[in-house]
């Protein structure tokens, strides 16, 4: 069968280009059924972008759902043996509530998952593929990378109140330094006041200042890593997380993607499912992130797996207005 490639529309060209990219890296295509038992989503509601799901009753009386998400199905259907690593990519329609119209919409999504024995090399490879995916679609792109374990090392113990912690995380995600300062100030006031700088308040103030500094550190790894290393010194959990982050982003050294990578701790993900490295991709001219992903070992544990996982999704519906590069 022969045909002229110019017949393809932009979305099709992106799908094929990404498929070729993932295939060349040894990722196998994973094709799945359109439906999944609703129970899977009911148990992991918070993992979904929105908790609205289209459901129907199958002929055998089971409550089924049109897939709102692919990752959960991939994890469920791919048990890995100890030491085994599975690398899969997919190109599927998902059904989600669209923000603008508040009604269900079919969204074409492509992405990949690496599950099982996931080491830093796997994480680096996924980061690299995320950047290459963006580069395939536009030359003007940015990949922002954060590390949730590093962020936790700075936020742990600042408050016992889950609601206040939620507000703090929101401030971090919004780069809202004034809001964070106010929240931390309020928390500090609840502590007992006695002694000088060695008192509980003094120590709290130091930790609060460290978090505020962390929020202000962002940009390319070359610029960010020296002050970040200084800030993490003396905090073992932060130092360990930083070590992993440094190793993971070193994959970009000397590549054309180096200039488009930014470390930024405002990059968010739900800590009930994600841990470690998380990232988001942006294209100039598209107002929201077109790619998101990260390590989700916590989800794996919740699903009863003793294995690691990392992956990302590209939201093809957001790429409609992009002009593709010539090649």
């Amino acid at each position: 069968m022969k045909f002229d490639y110019s017949i393809l529309d932009d979305t099709e060209r992106i799908i094929f280009a990404l498929r070729a990219l993932y295939d060349a890296r040894g990722y196998r295509r994973y094709k799945m059924s359109k439906f999944e038992e609703y129970d899977l989503y009911a148990r992991h509601k918070d993992f979904l972008v929105s908790d609205a799901v289209i459901t129907f009753t199958d002929t055998n009386g089971k409550l089924m759902a049109l897939k709102p998400d692919v990752t959960l199905s991939i994890v469920k259907n791919n048990p890995t043996a100890p030491g085994e690593t599975r690398k899969l990519f997919y190109n599927e329609n998902v059904y989600r509530v669209s923000k603008g119209t508040n009604s269900f919409k079919e969204i074409m999504q492509t992405g990949l998952e690496c599950i099982g024995n996931v080491d830093t090399a796997c994480i680096s490879e996924v980061l690299l593929l995320a950047a290459e995916s963006l580069r395939t679609v536009s030359r003007n792109y940015a990949l922002e990378i954060s590390d949730l374990s590093l962020l936790s090392a700075f936020t742990d113990g600042l408050t016992d109140d889950q609601k206040v912690m939620g507000q703090m995380m929101k401030c971090v995600q919004e780069k809202n330094l004034h809001g964070l300062t106010e929240l931390l100030g309020r928390c500090e006031e609840t502590l007992p006041e006695k002694g000088g700088d060695t008192s509980e308040r003094g120590r709290y103030r130091e930790r609060a200042e460290a978090l505020k500094k962390l929020l202000q550190i962002y940009g390319c790894p070359e610029k960010v890593l020296p002050p970040l290393t200084k800030l993490c010194a003396g905090n073992p959990a932060a130092e360990q997380a930083l070590g992993n982050l440094v190793e993971a982003v070193s994959v970009f050294d000397g590549t054309p993607m180096e200039a488009s990578v930014q470390i930024d701790f405002s990059c968010a993900a739900d800590m009930n499912y994600y841990n470690g490295i998380v990232f988001r991709g942006f294209l100039d001219g598209v107002p929201e992130s077109v790619l998101s992903g990260g390590q989700y070992d916590v989800l794996m544990r919740k699903m009863g797996r003793q294995a690691g996982a990392v992956g990302f999704a590209v939201y093809l519906d957001l790429l409609e207005r992009i002009t593709l590069p010539e090649d």
């Binding site: 940009g219 100039d284 929201e288």
Partner: peptide, 10 residues
């Protein structure tokens, strides 16, 4: 600030 603009017009 827009989150995407912030990346490209930092």
């Amino acid at each position: 600030a827009n989150r995407s603009s912030f990346r490209f017009r930092q």
